[in-house]
């Protein structure tokens, strides 16, 4: 028996919004430590890794490890039926071929359940090595989203250059060129507004704007985003989900042809 309850459906809606542009389907691996999903986009350029810890749920029960392959478009249809303040419970029997989403209104007067067929997905799991990154940038997630949106107008690719002075995002194309420089903040009123840079070695890498923009769909999950970079390895874009876990996107860099 698997059962996981969240007090507010909003968080699940936001998580789905953060992955459904990149992935058509995904396998949710459930164990007593929580729920994990790891999947590559169709082009095998990026990898999404979602971790939701069992202690972050209002209720969590997982008697036997189960893997539930879900069509994320279908899951989105179901979650649309939940109000933001509804409690959501995800339930499945051991070896079941369906999963049930149950939504309860705050006053418990309306209860709805939606059963969805599970899919058998033959997904490859990749081992991600522990890496000490040359540069780790933390910045407001809305600022990162804004920069990705703005620079995507100029080119398919964006250069991210990180030094101890700051981080610079650049794009150039037929229209002209764009550069956005962010310096480390010295003092801020709110921690969420801070830009911080931990640098061992300066790094310059090129990435596809389309994927970066897809990652920024996770912005509503967290006030801050963390970018981890080293030469010639994938960028990690991480959004922490408060008290519940995180979503990490890995993006392969572009290289000179």
């Amino acid at each position: 028996m698997f059962e996981a309850r969240l007090i507010s459906a909003t968080i699940l809606k936001k998580i789905l919004d953060a992955i459904k542009d990149l992935l058509n389907e995904g396998t949710f691996d459930c164990s007593d430590s929580g729920i994990q999903l790891q999947a590559m986009d169709n082009s095998h350029v990026s990898l999404v890794s979602l971790t939701l810890r069992s202690d972050g749920f209002d209720k969590f029960r997982c008697d036997r490890n189960i893997s539930m392959g879900m069509n994320l478009g279908s899951m989105a249809k179901i979650l649309k039926c939940a109000n933001n303040d509804d409690t959501v419970t995800i339930k499945a029997q051991d070896n079941a071929d369906t999963v049930t989403f149950m939504f309860e209104s705050p006053n418990h007067e309306k209860v709805s359940d939606y059963e969805m067929k599970l899919m058998n997905l033959d997904q490859e799991h990749l081992g991600i090595p522990e890496t000490d990154y040359s540069c780790v940038v933390r910045m407001p997630s809305m600022e990162f989203a804004r920069i990705c949106r703005d620079l995507a107008q100029f080119s398919e690719s964006m250069l991210i250059c990180c030094t101890k002075e700051g981080v610079k995002f650049s794009a150039s194309g037929d229209v002209g060129s764009a550069n956005v420089k962010l310096a480390q903040t010295s003092s801020v009123d709110k921690e969420e507004e801070a830009v911080s840079i931990e640098m061992q070695e300066p790094v310059t890498l090129t990435f596809a704007c389309r994927y970066l923009n897809a990652f920024t769909k996770a912005s509503p999950l967290s006030g801050q985003v963390q970018l981890s970079m080293s030469a010639d390895v994938p960028l990690v874009v991480e959004y922490r989900i408060q008290d519940l876990g995180h979503i990490r996107y890995y993006l392969a860099p572009k290289i000179e042809d």
């Binding site: 095998h44 350029v45 490859e124 990749l126 090595p129 994938p234 392969a252 572009k254 290289i255 000179e256």
Partner: peptide, 14 residues
């Protein structure tokens, strides 16, 4: 001209 690399070339299959 830049070439997009594949994510699988960086990670090992489990």
């Amino acid at each position: 001209k830049t070439k997009q690399q594949n994510i699988m070339s960086f990670f090992t299959k489990k």
